Each structure stands twice: as structure tokens, then as C-alpha cells.
Computed example of a mutant assay.
Amino acid sequence: MRVKIHTEGTNILLILLLILVVINLSAWMFIRPAVIPIVFSAVCGVFYLFVVNFFRSPRRTFRGDRENVVVSSVDGTVVALEEVFEPEVLRRKVRMLSVFMTVLNVHANWFPVDGEVLLVRHHKGRFLSAYLPKASIENERSTVLIRANNGQELLVRQIAGAVARRIVTYAEPGERSNIEDHMGFIKFGSRVDIYLPLDAEIKVKIGDKTVGGITEVAHLATKS
């Protein structure tokens, strides 16, 4: 597994570093006793490392059997697993699997299946806590519809949270999806829902931890 800084964070980290350097130089020049700028610099260093950690972008390789497999799109915790009616795109009953990310998780989003992207749609909305069930239909969100290689369709929804205010979606209609590729990125705490066919075999339960691009969350039934 290789880790690098995500392109979404490059400019933010550079600007933040320059700001912190200027502030800390001023503190060392004008503030006394010396213990104050020492403590201040230490706090700034910890804060900067925290932001760097948030924008880490691991490249992952799935080692299992890829046929009919659905992997988690994100690192996080399974917070919902229920049968719902999806009203915006699929317009039918499906099984919704939701994974919540804290600010400590990797925030890159992976494609959950190998297949073809059919639709990408952005929905404006509110910025409620992504942990709330109604966040799926009320919050700012981006929807990606994918047809898996076996012909089954599933929907992935990136959901902004109370802190997350920017959803980035790389998926484009007509392109191939690959479970080792990034589908998008959400900045600063959020949630991703996967809407699965009712006959999908679920491999996780509420409270389970997932690793994006690695953890098998479901198996799709073979389409007859």
C-alpha cells in the first residue's frame, strides 16, 4: 500500500504552511518569554500534521476475487444498513449501506464495483450532520450510478456533513469504474451511501469498520 498526499490537499497544505511559517517567525521575533513561542510552534506543528494526515491518499490493490464483489467506497464505520425506497434516480426499493467518516479517516472515495458509470448528478442541499439518517436526502450530495460488469446497477452517494462543504466527484458518464481507482474526495468529515439491489448478499453489519477499496461489503447476485 502506497501513501501520498491527495491533489485536493496540495494547495491547502502549501498555503497553510506559508501562513504558519509567517505567524511562527513573528512569534519568535516579538513574543517573550521564549517558552511561549516554543509552545505555540509545537501546537502549530501538531495541527499541520493533523491536516496532512487528513489529505493522505493511499493507493490500494484489491487482492480478492473481483467477480460480483462490492467493496467499501471509503474508510469509516457502517452506520446504517436498511431497506429503503430511493426516490431520485433508481426510484425503487433497494438496500442502503452507509459508512460514516470522521476527520481522522482517509477521505478519498473509491469506486465500489468494476463496471461502467451511467450517470453523475450533483444535488444542492443542507449541511446537517452526516451521521443523521435524513442527511441522505437533505444534505448537499453527489450521486453516481454504476452498472456492474454482471449487469446489476447500484448507486453511490457522496454526502456532505456539518463540516464538509466540498464534494469532489471524478466519475464521468461513459467511463469505466475500477475498484482500485478514486471516484472522488470529500473534505472534512462526511458519509457515503451505497444503494444495492435487494438480492445482494451483505457482508458487513452496523458498527463494522471498513477500508475503502479493500473491505468487501456485499456480493451481487448473478443476473440471469
Results as ranks from 00 to 15, higher is better:
residue 133 P to F: 11
residue 99 V to H: 00
residue 6 H to L: 07
residue 218 A to N: 01
residue 116 E to K: 15
residue 210 T to Q: 05
residue 77 T to S: 12
residue 131 Y to L: 13
residue 145 L to M: 11
residue 157 R to K: 14
residue 140 E to S: 10
residue 142 S to Q: 11
residue 13 L to F: 08
residue 17 L to F: 15
residue 223 K to N: 06
residue 154 L to G: 04
residue 80 A to S: 13
residue 164 A to H: 07
residue 89 V to T: 09
residue 86 E to S: 10
residue 8 E to R: 10
residue 201 E to G: 03
residue 158 Q to T: 13
residue 90 L to W: 12
residue 217 V to L: 03
residue 65 D to K: 14
residue 35 V to C: 08
residue 191 R to A: 05
residue 139 N to F: 00
residue 9 G to S: 03
residue 215 T to V: 03
residue 197 P to C: 11
residue 108 A to K: 00
residue 133 P to I: 08
residue 223 K to L: 05
residue 9 G to N: 08
residue 206 I to G: 05
residue 28 W to E: 04
residue 149 N to K: 12
residue 170 Y to C: 01
residue 49 L to Q: 11
residue 88 E to H: 15
residue 214 I to H: 06
residue 182 H to E: 10
residue 100 F to C: 07
residue 161 G to Y: 02
residue 59 R to L: 12
residue 136 S to E: 12
residue 53 N to W: 07
residue 37 P to D: 04
residue 186 I to P: 03
residue 167 I to S: 02
residue 29 M to C: 08
residue 103 V to E: 01
residue 206 I to N: 07
residue 159 I to T: 00
residue 209 K to T: 11
residue 33 P to M: 05
residue 206 I to W: 02
residue 81 L to H: 02
residue 81 L to V: 04
residue 52 V to N: 04
residue 162 A to S: 12
residue 64 G to H: 10
residue 138 E to T: 12
residue 126 R to K: 15
residue 51 V to C: 07
residue 19 I to A: 12
residue 33 P to F: 02
residue 221 A to G: 13
residue 86 E to K: 05
residue 17 L to V: 08
residue 190 S to L: 04
residue 100 F to N: 04
residue 172 E to M: 08
residue 92 R to Q: 15
residue 202 I to R: 10
residue 17 L to A: 15
residue 90 L to N: 01
